[in-house]
Amino acid sequence: MEEQQSPFQAAIKPGLTIGLVSLALTFIAYFIDSSLLGSAWFGLVAIVLFFVLIIYFGKQYRSELGGFMTFGTAFNFSFVTMVISGLVGVIGQLLLFHVVDPALPGVLADQAFETQLSFMEKIGQDPDALDPAMLEEMRASSSKGFTLSGQLMGFGFSLIVYAIIALILGAILKKRDKSLDY
């Protein structure tokens, strides 16, 4: 009889796969038009693809377990998959932002700053009425997210988001054996 993998072991391959797919999409978008990396729809497509792939791999793992999986197993599988995928993504983004195109973080930070200003206008606030020091602080905070420390800190905050998403995915992927209820 074949030995079953733990959720941690089973999550390694899907995590690497999802991370590499995410990284490939990032580089494809970069080569098409680097401004795509800062667009909302690109982020939305990436999140949907992320969910779909985790559910797909989670269902495969559940099948390997005999068609049933507890919430805890599903949570662990989902969380570890996302952490591995996130690590691959961070490493790839560090390479993109600091080796391939060191000017890209500045372009994306400017794009994020402009997006913030246009959002302020949409909700009725005039950005020109803001204190110039506050505008400069907004610009600096936009740039900070693309630094090495900013990306590592962002990954740390992502762990909290990954845990919340893993709770949702755990609820979706779990399936109990009702024949054991009797």
Rank of each mutant, 00 (worst) to 15 (best):
R62E: 04
K13Q: 13
L36A: 08
L148S: 05
G154R: 00
F51E: 01
F119Y: 12
P132Q: 07
F155C: 05
A109Q: 04
E121L: 09
S63I: 14
G89W: 03
S78A: 13
I55Y: 08
G15A: 15
V80G: 01
Q4R: 08
I18P: 00
P132W: 10
F157W: 12
A163E: 07
A163C: 10
I160T: 08
F31L: 13
M69A: 08
E136L: 05
G145V: 04
F42P: 00
L104W: 06
M153D: 07
A74K: 00
P102L: 07
L108F: 09
Y182V: 14
V48F: 04
R139Q: 12
L23R: 04
S142H: 02
H98M: 11
F31P: 01
A74N: 06
S141A: 09
G106Y: 05
A74L: 05
Q111P: 11
L37W: 04
T70N: 08
M138G: 03
F77P: 00
V48W: 05
F157I: 13
L20D: 05
K178A: 12
A112T: 15
E64Q: 10
F8W: 12
A163P: 06
G86H: 02
L173K: 03
L104P: 00
F57D: 02
M82Q: 14
D128M: 15
F27Q: 02
P14Q: 09
G58I: 00
G72Q: 13
Q116S: 15
V83G: 11
Q93C: 07
G86L: 04
I165Q: 05
P132E: 08
E64L: 15
E137P: 01
L167Y: 09
D126M: 06
I28R: 04
T115V: 11
E3K: 08
I165F: 11
G170Y: 03
F75Y: 12
I18H: 00
I172N: 03
L173D: 02
V99G: 03
G67K: 10
Y30K: 03
V45W: 07
M134W: 07
F51Y: 13
G92W: 07
Q4C: 06
T70G: 15
K175W: 06
T115I: 14
L167M: 15
A103K: 15
D131Y: 09
H98L: 09
R139L: 13
G72V: 07
I12A: 15
S34N: 09
G58W: 00
H98R: 09
E3L: 10
S142F: 00
L16D: 05
D177V: 06
S63M: 10
F8V: 14
L173F: 06
V80N: 01
L159K: 15
S6E: 08
Q60G: 14
G106P: 03
F157A: 14
S118A: 12
A11N: 06
F79L: 15
Q4W: 07
E137D: 11
E121T: 14
F42N: 01
S22C: 06
S149R: 13
Q151M: 14
M82V: 13
E2W: 10
F50G: 00
M120R: 10
S141D: 10
D33C: 06
L16G: 13
L49R: 01
P102N: 08
I54F: 01
G86I: 02
T147H: 00
I165S: 04
